[in-house]
Amino acid sequence: MAANCKSYWQYVWYYPILIVGLFVFYSFLYSALEELDVLVVASASMAVFITAIVFLYASVQVFPMTLQFGSTRKASIGALSVVELLWGVAMPLVLAACIGLLRGSAATALFIQILPVYIPVQFLAASGGGLLGFAVMRLRKVMRVVSFVLFFVLLFGCFMLFMPMLTRKLSGVPAEVSVLPVIIAVLLAAAGFLGEWLAARKYSV
């Protein structure tokens, strides 16, 4: 398990730097507008999309390599799930710290407000990206393209659904409003993790 975690981490560790770099760019881009809520939501969206792509590539590139080096499927997919979960928690924290450093405590407070929505969506992106990787590895060419497009449409749609809710949340809408989408995101993320486990079970290198 440790060997697998190190292998996945070796592949994904520099992407948070990319996200932070993009965030800094966004921060400067939106600095003139002074619209902190836009910055916060835009940063979270960007981090979610990059997460999906990172784990799509991690499952396609690293998973077969771990098996080739003699890992069991169980240990490799377990490690991928651990890294996905760690990323799901760590990335928002890193972004929160960056926002605090660059835009002050008011921005951090706004960011903390969206965390209950953002973290499940981040999990969804990680598990969905990983699952898509397995779909790409196992399905026929046409289906690969279809699943690829479907996934991004879903992810994009999901985020579009969350955006107004996030904005409402930022403007003081009661917390109960966000419970349903959060449950949906958690369920979809769980389905993603389960799908990865099932797909990994009989994968051939």
């Binding site: 440790a2 060997a3 697998n4 190190k6 292998s7 070796q10 592949y11 390599m65 771990t66 080096f69 003699g70 890992s71």
Partner: peptide
């Protein structure tokens, strides 16, 4: 070098 490092984790 990444491949070699990975191999060292497993064998």
């Amino acid at each position: 070098k990444q491949i070699l490092r990975m191999a060292s984790y497993y064998y």
